[in-house]
Amino acid sequence: MSRYLAIALALFAVTLAACNTIAGAGEDISKGGNAITNEAEKVK
């Protein structure tokens, strides 16, 4: 599971670095959180 978390965090960091506005950052953070939640649900 830690491997999935590391990948998700890396993708999150790249996405966050690529956004240009505060609104875009909020959307990116939300999508990153959803991806992490989905992976956690799969592992259960």
Rank of each mutant, 00 (worst) to 15 (best):
A13I: 06
A17C: 07
N34D: 04
E41S: 04
G32D: 08
K31S: 07
A23E: 08
A6Y: 05
I29P: 00
I22G: 01
G24A: 13
A6W: 03
N38D: 05
A25F: 13
I29W: 06
A10D: 12
M1T: 05
T37N: 09
C19F: 12
L16H: 02
G32C: 12
A17I: 06
T21Y: 07
A18Q: 12
K44A: 07
Y4N: 09
D28T: 10
N34E: 09
N20F: 05
I36L: 15
E39I: 13
S30Y: 08
V43E: 04
I22W: 14
K31V: 08
Y4G: 02
A17H: 06
G24S: 15
D28A: 15
G24D: 15
K42F: 01
A23G: 10
A17E: 01
V14G: 01
K42V: 03
A6G: 03
D28V: 07
S30Q: 07
M1Y: 04
V43S: 03
K31T: 10
T15Q: 10
A6T: 14
R3M: 05
L9V: 04
G33W: 02
E41V: 05
E41R: 15
L5H: 07
A18P: 01
G33K: 07
I7R: 13
E41W: 01
N20E: 09
E27L: 14
